[in-house]
Amino acid sequence: MIYLLSDTWFVAWRELLKFFRARVRLVVSLIQPVVWLAFMGNMMRGLTSNPVTAKALGTENYLAFMTPGIILMTVLFGGVFGGVSIVWDRRIGYLEKLLAAPISRGAIPFGKMLAAMIQGAIQVVAIIIIASLLGVRFQTGPAGIALIVLIAMLFSTILSGLSLALSASIKTMETLMAIVNFVTLPLMFTSNALFPLAAMPPWLAAIAKVNPVSYAVGPIRALTLTGWNWEVILPGLGVILGLALLALLVAQYIFQRATTE
């Protein structure tokens, strides 16, 4: 058990080392949310000046409405890299090297997921700082922000688990990226991350209601806009936690199966 933990940590450590070393990637991943918030947020400001739409959004600050969406979008794309790194490791033979070592097999997918989680958390903190500078007030203060980061980390696990499961049977980077884009973009736009349910046509709202992204958006938006609204926070947190655990198990199982011959 202690080995599982240390093995997982060192698999993640390798990813994090590279994450911090790739300066350009680091800078871009931090600038990206600024671009979203500053440009998109400003562009949509017209929405909140209209009292009807402001009511649908639940705030007069579209930036505040949008911040949870940007948080999840960033984490979503970050999580996907878990699988990409496995495909890469298979290519350069590193995966085989890991498998030849006496490490717990589960440590490989878990480590990749942990790395995606930590990277996600760093990005989320950066987004929250930037959003605060742009005038977004987080209603629940530091404790709420901590919970937002936690939800984002759990959400990242769902995505990295999914991409790891896919990468077990996909051997080329291009195919994986195509499938991942095919899944992630619709997932984002059929959720209430960027637009309120009330503003959607009924069919889209129906999809948005069952979309896991919406379950993560719910609690984060409540924590940002309204406060400790447990009726929204608990169910969302429950679903996200459940899906994260499921993703963990599925990724581990599929990885195990794909590497046993």
Binding site: Y3, S6, R14, L17, R21, G93, K97, A101
Partner: peptide, 24 residues
């Protein structure tokens, strides 16, 4: 292995350090 499996974005020391860690 036949194909040299070195992570080229890490230093020599980091590569060997990780290998040592994976052997506990």
């Amino acid at each position: 292995a036949q194909e040299t499996a070195i992570d080229d974005r890490l230093t020599c020391m980091e590569n060997i350090y990780l290998q040592g860690r994976f052997y506990h």
